[in-house]
Simulated scan of single mutants.
Amino acid sequence: MSSFQEIPVIDITDLGSDDAEKHKAVVAAIRDAAENVGFLTVTGHGIPQETIDGLLSETKKFFALPEEEKMKAYIGNSTNHRGYVPEGEEVFASGSKDMKEAFDLSVDLPADDPDYVAGNPMLGPNQWPEGRPEFKEKVMAYYNAAFELGQRLTRGFSEALGLEPEALDKYFEKPPSQLRLIHYPYNPDAPEDRPGIGSHTDYEAFTLLLPTAPGLEVMNDEGEWIDAPPVPGGIVINIGDMMEVWSNGLFTATSHRVRKVKEERYSFPLFYSCGYWTVVEPLPQFVDEDHPPAYEPVTAGEHLHAQTVQTFTYLKDRLARGEITLPENSRALSSFGQEAKRKAS
């Protein structure tokens, strides 16, 4: 990692192009960003503006509803972590409550899906607001488009790691990849040090983020917080915990946060996840006598679930009542990224 001062912008139009040299140039740029920053903004991603506009329009309509109406789809009503997240529900490692509200969803599996029936805590059907069919239609249109982009980027990251394009595909079967619709209302009376969202790394392989306004900050290896402003037509990509493990630390899950916003802000992260039962450990290509495994194997879905339980108030309450348990060998919050490395040193 380097003491970067800005987030690189990469046009991925030629990722997967028949022009081998142009394709290789994009892969090289992705590798450089993944190694030295852990964040990049991609343009030329191919998601239609109409799809983005539909997502934003329906999101604004939903969050403008009265609180009691939104709470009918409260995430605490679900058994697989889907639905409305009121302000203050999430508390990260810093201990401060977030100033935001959200709506969480994932791949919309049927109610008779065997994993859901068996009690999987992250797979199954979405919980949708009643009487709002356009919300479901527009949100899932964006989910599907962003997920397809995630599949494309997976192959780009695979090549950036020096692997064959399809080498990582097998790790992404039936992934609980979550899309969050997040609303940060502007509060002029909030303390300056009150976070919109606390410092953290993302628990999955990587994240695709569509923001509408500034606020995102990224930590460099000197512990400095660097602004990551939106780029017109761009989607922010950041390395997650699982990519850090695969690369044995070559790619770092960069710590990030959202500061108190100066304007109303919406953001849409899709957390591109491995399959729930995928065991993630340093790949053989990154392990030798000089570079022993720096990470114990981790089951991707269990890591995601454990981090989620330690963040959401309704799940912490269920844990305290003995209704759920943490997976064995669960890691504490902020166990990856620069903050974890700085603490260890």
Rank of each mutant, 00 (worst) to 15 (best):
M140A: 10
Y171H: 13
K138H: 06
S94N: 06
E192W: 15
R259W: 13
P165Y: 09
I30P: 00
T212M: 06
P165H: 08
F39Y: 01
P232M: 00
K70Q: 08
P269A: 07
T41M: 09
E58V: 05
G249D: 09
G275V: 11
S334R: 00
Y116W: 12
A64I: 06
Y272F: 02
I182K: 03
E89K: 03
V245S: 03
K24T: 09
V91H: 11
I182R: 05
G275H: 07
T41N: 13
T201W: 04
L333C: 06
D53H: 12
K136C: 07
A118P: 04
N36L: 02
A306H: 04
P114Q: 09
Y266E: 01
V287T: 15
L304H: 05
A205K: 03
P229Q: 00
R259V: 13
E50F: 12
G16Q: 14
N77Q: 08
D241L: 11
F39D: 01
L109P: 12
P230A: 02
E339P: 01
E222T: 04
E339I: 01
S267D: 07
G76L: 08
D53W: 14
V258I: 15
Q338N: 13
E87G: 14
P165R: 13
T13N: 11
G38N: 00
T79H: 07
H256I: 09
Y143W: 11
G240A: 14
M1P: 04
W128R: 10
S106L: 02
K341H: 06
V117G: 11
F157P: 15
S177M: 11
E264F: 09
K100P: 05
F206Q: 02
E264A: 05
M140V: 11
A332E: 02
V42F: 13
A20N: 07
Q285I: 01
D14H: 15
G76P: 13
H303K: 15
A28P: 00
M1D: 06
D11V: 09
P121R: 06
G215P: 00
L250I: 08
P86G: 02
E289T: 15
V279Y: 10
L123A: 03
L250H: 06
G83S: 07
V261E: 11
N77V: 07
M140L: 14
N238Q: 08
S247W: 06
G131N: 14
D14P: 13
K24F: 15
D112Y: 12
V236P: 02
M122I: 14
P110L: 13
A205I: 04
N187F: 06
V27H: 11
F336E: 01
Q307T: 11
L208Y: 04
C274V: 10
L181Y: 04
M242I: 07
L315Y: 02
R31A: 05
